[in-house]
Design a protein around this nucleic acid. Structure first.
Lengths: 328, 328
DNA sequence: CTGAAAGCGCTTACAG
DNA sequence: CTGAAAGCGCTTACAG
């Protein structure tokens, strides 16, 4: 392998000078620089990341931990992060935490690898994992909710989105609107529920406890929840699902029962994943800007890494918008 | 930071011994091992990856380059790779090459980072990129087709899959079956066409040139191809689409023309992406095991890295299976 | 089974 | 603006 030494020899300068040219950490005369650069090109020199890391401290790697890679929302977050990271020549490593017994393992593993920073969806990350992250003292951003103890986070305005979608149903004449959430404990569920409630309240519609059902953020979760909601005597005339996958599960049930959407029951999703426009009928939903969210995460991290941030917590709220399709 | 030196002090042994305990590269007495392990736990020691890398040579990182993260097939490949890589404590870095002018940049960048191995979808990777990869001498695997010049690759058995889906249509009584392929030049297209032909031939059905149309592997490609096939006087009574996205494009056209699927024309896809079961009618298709493909890629790489492989080229063909739904 | 020492390829004070 | 030298935290021959 060709190293800094070979380059220095060919260029007729010291190893320090080669290092300065590569890193730009101190001024080098134009003539010297040109000679060094010529030698680098000629020899095909590539810095050894391990060596730089050992001295410089940083690995140039940022990690993303997601609950699952099967929900297409998360790969898009990864793509957004890359939009920002690639120009800075930072590597992104993505971990699907669903396979590991506990995401704590993922955090631990990534910390051992000395990643420079991390973004994680906090859902299901046990407190111990978050604590370890805190102790490590590296910049990190959470997705969707503020980490306990404070820290940067990025979310789209869930209260507003859920409110918009519910108001849309009310405007369409629906009166008995149910809410089908994912896991009750996570903040996005709570905020979407809050938006739903706010819309009903503003319209003077009653809030009924049994119109709110919690399940999982999956297609199967949607099936389970829909089974509950739709077997009642007094069926809702609309369902606000907390994400598209849940809504798609609801469609499975309406189809099986011969219910027409939207005639018998109107339905809305959340996120606007590709599938939302492919199902039949295509879903009215809230566009959740996954890629933008990824970009924002990466930017927050980079600012911390660049050291010009003093605030403990910064929140980035991205706006979302209603996409009306045939399911309402 | 606590390093090997601190651990050695606390355990009352030399730094070498600590290193041996951590790496397992040479036998250590049980008593010593226990003392060292206690010290490691007590101090919370984590090896510095940069230092190990500088000596040991490997970064413990494997890269995956995909044409896009927006096609849900690829994130699943990534998830499959992780299934295999995580237990070996190897990091996966995923690059979406769509953003970069040329994937060559991605390859170059990853090589600079000294990733230990790489898997890439060869579609659209220019020869220069592949050549650089070859020169780097690191193990790599391609997706779907053999890399020019030879090397490991993983694909599902496309001939067999396409044959199965075509035989299924014949069994359903279809006689005039068209093939709607993606780009003619890529191997998967050629193999799926071969399977389709084999099925017709075995059934004694004629092969007509004008029943074979090539387009792009996209929804729009499907629309374009369907427009050609369905405007003829003698319409086919079935269409074998070379992937699900194409089939979904066909559905757009049948819907617009008031043709019923499967009554007027039966339709099959390929891949079984989520959307295949979401469209109406849901598609009969061939399940292309993305996650399994990812696992196989990782295993091939690991075997090379472990050094017990001498063959230049190894091909892994994964079996796929017919999924029958309402479109046939 | 264990230790002392060299060295992996860089970066960064320290000098000039 | 440039160079010589120390050292980052490990691993691995080399000895014993």
């Amino acid at each position: 392998m060709v190293g800094i030494r070979e380059v220095a020899e060919v260029a007729g300068v010291s190893m320090s000078t080669v290092s300065q040219v590569v890193s730009g950490n101190r001024p080098v005369s134009a003539a010297t620089r040109a000679r060094v650069e010529a030698a680098i090109t000629h020899l095909g020199y590539r810095a050894h990341p391990g060596a730089s890391q050992l001295r410089g401290g940083r690995t140039g790697t940022i990690a993303l931990i997601v609950p699952t890679l099967e929900n297409p929302f998360y790969p898009l977050v990864a793509a957004g992060m890359q939009d920002v990271l690639v120009p800075r020549d930072i590597l992104l490593t993505v971990t699907d935490a669903s396979g590991m017994d506990r995401s704590t393992n993922a955090i631990h593993r990534l910390l051992s690898r000395r990643v420079d920073a991390m973004v994680a969806a906090p859902f299901g990350i046990p407190a111990a994992g978050l604590a370890e992250l805190h102790d490590a003292g590296i910049p990190f951003v959470t997705l969707g909710e503020e980490p306990p103890g404070g820290g940067d986070y990025v979310h789209s305005d869930d209260v507003r989105g859920a409110r918009a979608v519910t108001e849309h149903l009310i405007a369409r004449g629906r009166r008995r609107i149910a809410f089908l959430g994912g896991e009750e404990s996570v903040i996005p569920t709570q905020q979407r529920l809050e938006g739903y409630r706010a819309a009903l309240q503003a319209a003077g519609l009653p809030l009924r406890d049994d119109d709110v059902v919690f399940t999982e953020y999956t297609r199967q979760g949607g099936r389970d929840g829909a089974a509950l909601l739709l077997e009642r005597d007094e069926r809702p005339d609309a369902i606000v699902a907390a994400n598209d996958l849940i809504a798609i599960g609801v469609l499975d049930v309406t189809r099986a029962r011969g219910l027409r959407v939207p005639e018998d029951v109107a339905l809305t999703g959340y996120d606007d994943i590709d599938a939302a426009s492919l199902v039949s009928p295509p879903l009215t939903t809230i566009e959740n800007p996954a890629r933008e969210i990824g970009r924002a995460c990466a930017r927050l991290l980079l600012e911390r890494l660049d050291g010009d941030v003093t605030e403990v917590t910064r929140a980035v709220a991205l706006s979302n918008r209603l996409v009306v399709r045939d399911s309402t």
